[in-house]
Design a protein around this nucleic acid. Sequence first.
DNA 1: ATTAGCACTCACGCCGAATGAGTGCTAACA
DNA 2: TGTTAGCACTCATTCGGCGTGAGTGCTAAT
Lengths: 353, 353
Amino acid sequence: MDLNDRKFKILEAIITDYIKTAEPIGSRTIAKKYDLGVSSATIRNDMSDLEELGLIVQPHTSAGRIPSDRGYRLYVDKMMQSQELSPEVADLLQNVVENNIGQIDYLMQQTAKALAALTNYTIVVTEPKSSRLNIKHVQLVPVDERSVVAVIVTENKSVKNHVLRVSNVPDIEQLNSISQAINTAIQNYTLQDMESIASVMLQTYPENRELVTKLLKAILTAVKQNDNVHYYTSGVNNILGFPEFSDVEKAKNIFRALEEKDMLITLFDKDSEHNDEVHIVIGGENNMKELQECSIVRADYNYGNDSYGTIGVIGPTRMNYSQTVSVLNAIIKNLETVIKSISDGKNKDGKNG
Amino acid sequence: MDLNDRKFKILEAIITDYIKTAEPIGSRTIAKKYDLGVSSATIRNDMSDLEELGLIVQPHTSAGRIPSDRGYRLYVDKMMQSQELSPEVADLLQNVVENNIGQIDYLMQQTAKALAALTNYTIVVTEPKSSRLNIKHVQLVPVDERSVVAVIVTENKSVKNHVLRVSNVPDIEQLNSISQAINTAIQNYTLQDMESIASVMLQTYPENRELVTKLLKAILTAVKQNDNVHYYTSGVNNILGFPEFSDVEKAKNIFRALEEKDMLITLFDKDSEHNDEVHIVIGGENNMKELQECSIVRADYNYGNDSYGTIGVIGPTRMNYSQTVSVLNAIIKNLETVIKSISDGKNKDGKNG
DNA sequence: ATTAGCACTCACGCCGAATGAGTGCTAACA
DNA sequence: TGTTAGCACTCATTCGGCGTGAGTGCTAAT
């Protein structure tokens, strides 16, 4: 059985209608609302065929049809038209990015927030993560009589603070000296050779043994933390807005799933090489039973060499794929252009610059 | 009409029972479950009196009684017994605090998380905020060819990073020199006298005009950000676990309310001097209609001179006030002892120390 | 002051009928 | 052979009625 033009149109009608209304749609409604030039009986026959192909299903005997996961898949792969963003939306997305360059965490947060507001779905954004991580610069800053902050700048430009608590804090000159020493040590050895670095440092600063030890530990932690993906979510509550989750139990399950970090990580890492395409996982295609009624649209953004992060949109299976893909493409393009322009040196100023 | 001992006992029975079960409770049940030595008819008469006093209400004619806001108020003010924490819980609360000293933001986050897990309510923790804020130390750290991080340590020991984007980054010696200069300048002048600081700095480092200007701006931002209360929430989803919010619409309203930052701020600032007592706002006592079915238990913790933050617990009116107050008292005591011991110098080590 | 007894109220759950949206099938038609 | 009108059939949903039971309020007796 092949799909003629009319059947495609009927499938499309069912999908777009269902995305809008969340109600099963029947033959008569299609005949009236969409001008296909045939009677409801004909549409009925076609729908019967579409059901036989597994593209639509009937929730119960006397109801209309709704798209199946396979139906959505066909739609997304073959039929969906890319959607032009309105200038307002495009502007908004651009502003979000441009106003927040410089502070990665803030940028991620704001991006997530904007996307959540725009799409009404749940957004997850991961911080850029590179496969190999090197420390670029370390600086010790005094806080009070018993604590020093180690500011650690990594090669992918993230800046992390680690508070070191020590029994006595050396003066600023000494702190600077130690900072400088560790920086040269890091340049001369690789981080894998921590023992060498440690012995050199402890030899040079025997009187600051405690501080140096803790500093080295902090550096190791920073490197390890790289494996520990940081991410930001926004719009989790949007879930409650959809009739398919008006059952509190269902909503709770989804919330629980979203809270579990590991789950999200696998969600984003699995089965997908990092590439330039938007990736769509529909309903049961993902193997987490808590999210079988959800779809996930995700895309990666490059952030300098070897370093990339992910933006994911989680919504009901009945989500507006076309709009979501457009928005994702736009924000990723914005992120990447701005990032590139910064490293090229013709940057605009960030909010805090 | 006065409240004799038995009526108090009946009220208490109704409140504790309702807190546990969320079901209206009738005279017969009280007679059976609580050993008052009188018949259900007697209890019925007493309940009628309690209702007349506005301490309990009937959801509908043929239902049992539930406590009114005024009933809870009487209970909380006059009848509630402080509850001993189990050693496990006490330990847990202590560990949370002690393992996270040093990194305020992390400490707040973990505290919120622990309290949410423990109480099953929603927790809001605000970062300590002092009425006057002074900068204690500033250090510039290079990130890449076009950006420098200004690490700003304030007197209340918070450490903030501000990325400064500049057209060219001076070398490390120069950055250190500028850092040192700004530190002495800040010591010599007050922050109110920014113009003097600016003119001195710009005179000393004419070739780094851009960097210095942005640095000063960042410092001002840091001071101003102090007005901007930072807070952490946890356990928002716990709301969904309570039958009173099993209606999705209600849950959504509460979520919306909790999302609005301003709302939370007023919730915490309003009508309450900062003092050592746990503060309880019951149901309709707060004037936000979205939260009229919720109660808020909050307490402030001192964080060094003039600086304090707030921990708030938000739950259904039918919340376990006694347990909540105990937990709050415990965590606040822990926070304050640990903070004090740090400034006294006999600290334990933090996780990252 | 307390209690037993009784009439009364009313939310809740269950049943059955009516409704109506939607289907599948068949026979007729172009 | 594809399309259509017509019709019987299905079944979720709605609504009214009815029985049940938890709970009250009142009264009269203790």
